[in-house]
Design a binder for these strands. Structure first.
Length: 508
RNA sequence: GGUCCUGUGGCCGAGUGGCUAGGCUCAGCUCUGCAAAAGCUGCUACAGCAGUUCGAAUCUGCUCGGGACCUCCA
């Protein structure tokens, strides 16, 4: 097994990864709250963890990857413990059942994940499907003295917990700091301490989503679902817990407190956090209103105001999107994300995206060239060394930008060999094919353009015919006609390339 | 206001106490009937000031700028 180093938020250092059970990894990632469509910032986080999931499997681990779906219990104002349940509110506004809201957005979410080629997790549990587990965990926390009931609500007693535990392990903030630098909030009267958060909320009569509990009819708090479900599927202590770094100070901090309050020990060995996607240097978030949707990026179009859904297959589009100069394919977007380390902010711009598109095409074009390479008796370049560099990059906290740099070195070599300026023997060509398959396809999850089917075959035959005819024209030095053929193919989206070994073509 | 992160060449974006990141763009060259593609070469950067060091873009301090969190947020 490769020695893998992962940056751990708990220690703020890169640590050698040691799973609890040899060759098995338990990984939990906080998934979406399905009260609206996922935006591209959400996608970046899930894609980052998808790469980790893929790489862990690639180096031989059996991974159980759990990513929850929050379909209940996420209040509009978590800290104050007031406001409506987010999904319940959408249900009321759209005059649908809450489960209809969840169904709509989870369908869209899965479609986007699939388009961007993120693998489905091993288990995708929903909060509403785990109410008994959450109630049970809440009871244990009460028994251990870290939570109290008040008028049908159950709150976690942060200050009491902090006396015997480090509440700020993840955020690095002291309790005093948090107590003294929190803004004045409404709806605090029921809580003993201002940092206390809800484990269970009493449901008001108009609240649609409600369950019976030892404390009356209500619904679970937001944080408890992740603690309950991760414990159920991965155990009281598991290897990796991930999420966006904006979850550190509240959601994850409270998850740790709940699990410790319930079980008496820390739930997670390695906390991994991904950085934000920014637009003009500012974090993309729903509250700032600077979000755009995957379907908009993939089409370059704007979602119509009356579109019934933002799910790519169902979306109604309305004119060009003001932000995008063109459409960018999911593959290109994925490649674009890989060019930045997951822990750095990633800034969106047309210029950057177009640069990625060209780089991506060049890399994939070299893949096609690789398939056609003719072996020599000997190799003039060291392929094994590059393979090692690829692993070294990924083993250093999943450093995809360095991995890509090495893959581009492969591309350069492939092109040079194709130009007969370097040589590779058959074994090294096979090794390059393995590197490309392993890293481009399996680990990075980038897709090759599919070229199969009858129409593709027919086009190929037609192109061979055109190229043959053009060659005859060229041999007669009728360059005007040869250029006309080339130009008109260009207009049709086909690029002709005259090389030493004959003419090739690509679809633009 | 408090806590913390960050500032790299035209753009994006890695990394590190001394050794080439990489991609895109731009210019020149090779190849070519001409293009395109590909290859090669060049544009050789680390916010500013001071300090530590044989040596710093990489460590320390200060200044200026950007951002995140402290409210829901991936």
């Amino acid at each position: 097994m490769q020695p893998l180093y992962i940056h751990n938020t708990l220690t703020r250092k890169k640590e050698l990864f040691k799973p609890i059970h040899e060759s098995h990894v338990g990984m939990y990632v906080c998934g979406p709250t399905l009260y609206s469509d996922v935006h591209i910032g959400n996608c970046r986080t899930f894609t980052s963890f998808d790469i980790m999931y893929r790489y862990l499997m690639h180096i031989g681990y059996k991974v159980r990857y759990v990513r929850n779906i929050t379909d209940v219990g996420h209040l509009e104002d978590e800290v104050a413990g007031v406001g409506e349940d987010r999904i319940g509110k959408q249900a009321r506004l759209k005059q649908l059942e809450p489960m209809e809201i969840v169904q709509r957005y989870s369908f869209g979410f899965r479609e986007v994940m699939s388009l961007i080629n993120n693998l489905p997790p091993s288990i995708e549990p929903t909060a509403s499907g785990h109410i008994p587990e959450q109630i049970e965990m809440t009871q244990k926390i009460i028994e251990h003295g870290f939570a109290y009931e008040k008028d049908g609500n159950v709150y976690f007693d942060v200050e009491k917990f902090a006396k015997s535990n480090n509440y700020g392990v993840l955020s690095g903030r002291s309790l005093d700091d948090q107590l003294n630098n929190t803004r004045e909030l409404d709806g605090q009267e029921e809580k003993k301490g201002r940092l206390d958060f809800a484990l269970w909320k009493k449901a008001k009569p108009e609240h649609i989503m409600r369950w019976n509990s030892p404390w009356g009819v209500g619904f679970p708090g937001w944080h408890i679902e992740c603690s309950a479900m991760s414990q159920k599927y991965l155990g009281e202590t598991f290897d990796i817990h991930g999420g966006g770094m904006d979850l550190i100070p509240t959601h994850h901090t409270n998850e740790v407190a709940q699990s410790v309050g319930c079980c008496g020990h820390a739930p997670v060995n390695y906390w991994v956090h991904t950085n934000m996607l920014t637009l003009n240097g500012q974090k993309m978030s729903r509250s700032l209103g600077n979000v755009f949707l995957p379907v908009e990026l993939f089409t370059g179009m704007k979602l119509a105001a009356d579109s019934p859904s933002a799910t790519p297959s169902q979306a109604k589009l309305d004119g060009k999107h003001p932000l995008f100069e063109k459409a960018y394919s999911p593959n290109v977007v994925r490649f674009f994300m890989m060019q930045t380390h997951y822990a750095s902010t990633l800034d969106f711009s047309n210029e950057a995206l177009q640069g990625s598109e060209k780089g991506f095409n060049r890399l994939m074009e070299s893949y096609n060239t690789l398939d056609k390479l003719t072996p020599s008796a000997t190799s003039s370049v060291d392929i094994k060394k590059i393979q090692e560099a690829c692993y070294a990059a990924m083993n250093d906290d999943f450093n995809t930008p360095i991995l890509l740099a090495n893959l581009f070195e492969c591309a350069r070599i492939i092109n040079t060999v194709n130009d007969k300026k370097e040589t590779l023997n058959a074994a090294d060509i096979d090794l390059l094919k393995k590197i490309y398959k392993d890293f481009i396809i399996d680990v990075l999850g980038l897709k090759r353009e599919e070229q199969s089917g009858k129409s593709v075959e027919a086009l190929s035959n037609v192109m061979n015919l055109v190229i043959d005819l053009r060659k005859k024209v060229k041999d007669n030095k009728d360059y005007a006609t040869a250029d006309e053929i080339r130009n008109r193919l260009q207009e049709s989206g086909i690029q002709i390339k005259d090389g030493k070994e004959g003419t090739s073509w690509t679809i633009n």
